Simulated assay, not measured.
Amino acid sequence: MPNGPLPGAPFIPCPGGVLLSQRSILVSCSDLFPRLHVRHGSNSSVELKTDNDVVKFSFGTQPANGRIRRKEKKTPRQIKMSKRAKLNELRFYRLKAKKKMNSPNPEVRIRYKLDKAKRKEEWLIEKLRKFDVPKLPDEPHDPEILTEEERFYLKRTGEKKKNYVPVGRRGVFGGVVLNMHLHWKNNETVKVVCKPCKPGQIHTYAEELARLSKGIVIDIKPNNTIIFFRGKNYVQPKVMSPPDTLSKAKALEKYKFEQSLEHTSQFIEKLEHELEEYHQHLARYKKGKKEALQDNPSVLNT
């Protein structure tokens, strides 16, 4: 408590000869009434407010920073489903799907299969996005210019030699480039044999391997074989497997998803064709029935 009154404020008499200012003052009960006997004492504070000539008292503790704490809203707890409830839910969906599969209406059956296949297609596309490896910026590389005679010589040499690198269903991954560099350690050329290979895919493999290995494509054979030349000033890199390629296991996993996506897309096309044929058949049937009724109105009367 201050020894004197606050300047510029009227005084309010209180017990014990203490003068209180008209401003808001926070005092302790023990300081305000020191001589009164209190049975159950507390350290709570008394706040006296005199706004607009009205005296107000408020009891309670005031936080140190002067702010009143508010109760935080509790997030509703997620109710966990029991094992029996989960089984019942799965059983419900199975019965619902079985009802659609055994529906007498062909359109319902086709649409159910079509929706299921489209959901699977979206899921496979989302899975394949995880295998997209960002390509690193190309390093400065001076491509060597070969004459026709040199190309012919390297082509004949590469055909005669037996060293080769296979590219299978996994496609181009880090191990293929690594094997090419290992062959180039003792040989100028190396053959890359692609089996199985789709039509036109051999050229894609040739461009990708030339970018990753910095080799020169000498010739592409009809039997899906590419002959690569290492270059005149070839220096074996420290990291022979490029970092922007997939591993052997990841490449196989990607191949499986790609195969599944291809088959699913073909199945969707087949179902869409069946649905279109069914609608055409339905239109022809309705048209024929309408013409029959127009020709024989007696059938309609009966």
Rank of each mutant, 00 (worst) to 15 (best):
R151C: 09
F152T: 15
K155A: 02
K155V: 02
K155Y: 15
K155P: 00
K155T: 09
R156Y: 02
R156L: 10
R156G: 04
T157E: 04
T157H: 11
G158V: 06
G158E: 09
G158H: 05
E159G: 04
K160N: 06
K160I: 05
K160A: 09
K160H: 06
K162P: 05
K162A: 11
K162V: 03
K162D: 15
K162W: 08
K162F: 04
N163C: 03
N163Q: 12
N163Y: 08
Y164R: 11
Y164M: 01
Y164L: 00
V165R: 15
V165M: 13
P166I: 03
V167H: 14
V167N: 02
V167Q: 07
V167G: 14
G168P: 13
R169A: 10
R169K: 07
R170A: 05
R170F: 00
G171Y: 08
G171S: 05
V172L: 04
V172S: 12
G175I: 01
G175F: 10
G175M: 10
G175K: 14
G175P: 05
V177A: 02
V177N: 03
L178T: 00
L178N: 10
N179E: 13
M180D: 11
M180W: 07
M180S: 10
M180L: 10
H181M: 08
H181R: 04
H181T: 03
L182C: 05
L182S: 12
L182P: 00
L182F: 01
L182E: 06
H183Y: 02
H183E: 10
W184C: 15
K185Q: 08
K185R: 06
K185F: 09
K185P: 00
K185S: 12
N186Y: 06
N186E: 14
N186Q: 08
N187R: 13
E188L: 08
T189V: 11
T189L: 11
T189S: 09
V190P: 04
V190F: 08
K191D: 10
K191I: 02
K191G: 14
K191N: 13
K191A: 11
V192D: 10
V192L: 15
V193M: 08
V193G: 13
V193T: 04
C194Q: 04
P196T: 00
P196V: 00
P196Y: 02
P196W: 01
P196F: 01
C197L: 02
C197P: 04
C197E: 10
C197W: 01
C197G: 07
C197N: 11
C197D: 06
K198H: 14
P199M: 02
P199V: 01
G200W: 11
Q201I: 01
Q201R: 09
Q201W: 08
H203Y: 13
T204I: 07
Y205H: 12
Y205L: 10
A206N: 03
A206V: 01
A206T: 07
A206E: 12
E207I: 01
E207V: 01
E207C: 04
E207A: 13
E208A: 13
L209P: 01
R211H: 08
R211K: 12
L212N: 09
L212A: 09
L212G: 09
S213G: 08
K214I: 00
G215P: 06
G215A: 12
G215Y: 07
G215E: 07
V217F: 03
I218P: 14
D219E: 11
D219P: 04
I220A: 13
K221S: 08
K221Y: 11
P222T: 00
P222Q: 12
N223H: 15
N224E: 08
N224G: 12
T225M: 14
T225I: 07
T225R: 05
